[in-house]
Computed example of a mutant assay.
Amino acid sequence: MAFQVLPLAVTMVAGPQIMSAIILLTHRRVVRVSLAYLAGFALATVAGVALARRIAALLSGVLSLGDPADRGSAGTIIQYILVGLLLVAVVRNYLGRTTAEPPSWLGTLLGAGPGRAFVTGVLLVLLMPTDLIAMLTVGVNLEQDHAPPSAAIPFVLATVFLLALPLLGYLAFRQRVTAVMPQVREWMNSHGWLINIVVCLLFIVLILA
């Protein structure tokens, strides 16, 4: 898998994904629910990348995806289409910034058990447009390079590691993290639209680079 795909792991976790991980740090059973959340996210990422690779393989059976270095290849054009969708998302987030509200389900995570945390991790991968686009990009890249599914392991590990950073920080600096998390959570809730725009723009830069 091409090295430039690895930074897409950042877009997989930025937004509600990392916000959920931070909110869970204020749960009364932090470690248990956080690990369940990470497990669900990891499982969904593995399944999503595998499905994306399969979709890319089916597409290659209809048309040649070409070489990743060829800007005119079908695979690259597909990625340009994804960039267009991301630009639409950027405009929508900016226009709706004054009325944007954090998802109501974020506030309910504090009372969630491990089972619900696990399901939340799964759904945040399979239902988030940016995650779906990221995994499709990885799938197309794997198919263009004729790489085996195992080539996606670094991407999956990088994604899970980034999402685990809040929990790792909590375990290493529990008192400090506990003290600042309410302020961090409040800022992220009020600036969710900005986080979404930054994620989309980062994704666009990574694809076009």
Rank of each mutant, 00 (worst) to 15 (best):
residue 101 E to K: 15
residue 103 P to R: 07
residue 202 L to H: 09
residue 17 Q to E: 14
residue 99 T to D: 13
residue 26 T to Q: 15
residue 181 M to E: 11
residue 80 Y to D: 03
residue 79 Q to L: 12
residue 151 A to Y: 03
residue 23 I to T: 10
residue 57 A to P: 03
residue 102 P to S: 06
residue 2 A to T: 13
residue 115 G to S: 13
residue 58 L to V: 14
residue 73 S to Y: 06
residue 49 V to Y: 01
residue 126 L to E: 01
residue 114 P to D: 04
residue 157 L to R: 04
residue 75 G to C: 01
residue 126 L to G: 01
residue 44 A to S: 05
residue 33 V to H: 00
residue 135 M to G: 04
residue 44 A to H: 02
residue 14 A to P: 02
residue 60 S to M: 12
residue 103 P to A: 08
residue 187 W to K: 08
residue 86 L to H: 00
residue 128 M to D: 15
residue 100 A to D: 07
residue 95 L to P: 08
residue 13 V to P: 03
residue 36 A to T: 04
residue 110 L to F: 12
residue 180 V to G: 04
residue 186 E to Q: 13
residue 50 A to K: 05
residue 143 E to I: 11
residue 108 T to W: 11
residue 171 L to S: 07
residue 200 C to W: 06
residue 112 A to Q: 08
residue 191 H to E: 01
residue 80 Y to C: 04
residue 31 V to K: 10
residue 21 A to G: 00
residue 40 G to A: 07
residue 163 L to T: 02
residue 11 T to R: 06
residue 131 D to S: 15
residue 122 V to N: 02
residue 151 A to E: 02
residue 202 L to Y: 12
residue 48 G to T: 09
residue 36 A to F: 04
residue 53 R to H: 15
residue 53 R to S: 15
residue 130 T to S: 13
residue 46 V to L: 13
residue 41 F to Y: 12
residue 86 L to T: 01
residue 107 G to T: 04
residue 149 P to G: 13
residue 155 F to Q: 01
residue 141 N to K: 13
residue 93 N to Y: 15
residue 88 V to K: 11
residue 174 R to T: 11
residue 1 M to F: 12
residue 74 A to M: 11
residue 18 I to R: 00
residue 162 L to W: 05
residue 29 R to Y: 08
residue 131 D to I: 11
residue 5 V to R: 00
residue 53 R to T: 12
residue 119 V to S: 02
residue 79 Q to T: 08
residue 29 R to S: 08
residue 120 T to G: 05
residue 110 L to P: 05
residue 119 V to L: 12
residue 64 S to M: 08
residue 180 V to I: 12
residue 204 I to F: 01
residue 130 T to L: 12
residue 119 V to Q: 07
residue 5 V to C: 01
residue 128 M to R: 14
residue 48 G to S: 11
residue 139 G to H: 01
residue 182 P to V: 09
residue 5 V to F: 10
residue 35 L to N: 02
residue 41 F to P: 00
residue 139 G to N: 02
residue 134 A to F: 04
residue 39 A to I: 08
residue 139 G to T: 04
residue 12 M to L: 10
residue 190 S to A: 15
residue 101 E to L: 14
residue 25 L to G: 02
residue 25 L to F: 03
residue 45 T to D: 01
residue 22 I to F: 05
residue 92 R to V: 14
residue 10 V to F: 10
residue 145 D to K: 14
residue 18 I to H: 01
residue 204 I to A: 00
residue 198 V to D: 02
residue 178 T to Y: 00
residue 175 Q to M: 12
residue 156 V to H: 03
residue 113 G to N: 09
residue 54 R to D: 13
residue 53 R to I: 13
